[in-house]
């Protein structure tokens, strides 16, 4: 299907300006790109766990949402929206509701990889018709840049600082998209805000699914990553070009790359743009970048095999 940006400009904006996300934040762009691709004849219920998005878009009495919206706590966005979706089904069953709704949750990586993981897994297994989006900025940014299960090896954070005894985070991130795909849900994908067309297509597929769908979308945070704020899109693109953040989808069990970098850039190209990796470029940490490269290569090879491209 042809997807034109000029067509998206005519679609409903579900998130208004006037929210209090930081200038240059990648997350609201992720939300806009996904919701601009929502069916135009539906209504939405949006859910956030506690996090940047929630505290910045619903500061009483100001809400940035033109959709119905609910937040209840941190670890339970998937459970909360599954309650809303079931309520919808209950009212439809009893003939008490005419309008159609779609259900979307936007959780950060902390609220998705870590504290909200059980709730997400349960909701996926139960098969609720909902799109769960992880806007991934690779740390707990709302509380001040603490490491999460999505924080990559070697990254500085306030709870994985570098020092004489540590190079920053000493563990690799987990592969949440693959873990979600292992729930055998109809649609799971990895996306990045630099590739709006890819995002919109994945969102359209997700909205069309009669069951759970999941998008893990790279949404850089300049406060946490330490780079100039205008470079948010550029950094997202670099994560893709270095194969640190590949773009793919798993549709009914079929793995497929949805975009492939023309040339695979060395991870150094990505790392050197950000203050959170600055300490890796000292002489004593010389070997660390290779460790990161090896990890990225291994994950990339595994992905190529899964996608039948190896």
């Amino acid at each position: 299907m042809a997807l034109k940006l000029k067509d998206l400009t005519k679609n409903k904006e579900w998130l208004t300006g006037g929210h209090r996300m930081c200038a240059g934040c990648g997350a609201p762009t992720a939300v806009r790109q996904i919701l601009l691709a929502a069916p135009q004849d539906t209504n939405l219920v949006v859910c956030n766990p506690t996090g940047c998005m929630e505290v910045s878009t619903t500061i009483y009495p100001y809400t940035s949402w033109r959709a119905s919206y609910i937040h209840s706590a941190f670890e339970n966005a998937a459970a909360t929206i599954s309650g809303v979706e079931t309520a919808y089904n209950a009212l439809k069953k009893r003939g008490k509701l005419e309008d159609d709704f779609h259900f979307v949750a936007f959780g950060g990586d902390g609220g998705t990889y870590d504290i909200g993981f059980q709730s997400l897994s349960g909701a996926l297994e139960r098969g609720h018709r909902m799109l769960y989006v992880c806007y991934n900025n690779e740390a707990y940014m709302n509380t001040g840049i603490q490491r999460s299960g999505a924080t990559p090896y070697g990254a500085w954070s306030t709870t994985s600082p570098f020092g004489s005894e540590s190079i920053g985070k000493v563990q690799n991130r987990k592969d949440l998209t693959a873990i979600v795909a292992a729930h055998n849900i109809p649609y799971a994908a990895q996306a990045s805000i630099h590739n709006w067309r890819d995002v919109a297509r994945k969102a359209q597929k997700s909205f069309a699914v009669n069951g759970p769908s999941f998008i893990n979308i790279m949404a850089p945070c300049h406060r946490g990553w330490r780079y100039p704020m205008e470079k948010t899109i550029e950094l997202a693109k670099l994560s893709f070009e270095t194969c640190i953040w590949p773009l793919y989808e798993v549709e009914e069990g079929q793995w497929k790359l949805t975009a492939k970098p023309r040339e695979k850039k060395p991870v150094e190209e990505f790392l050197k743009t950000q203050g959170r990796f600055r300490h890796l470029f000292t002489p004593e940490n010389k070997g660390q970048i290779q460790i990161i490269q090896d990890f990225v290569d291994r994950e990339w090879e595994t992905l190529l095999k899964r996608c039948g491209e190896a």
Binding site: S72, T80, G83, V84, A87, A90
Partner: peptide, 10 residues
């Protein structure tokens, strides 16, 4: 949590 979501849904 689901009870809260369902109740808020109406």
């Amino acid at each position: 949590s689901a009870a809260i979501g369902a109740a808020a849904a109406g």
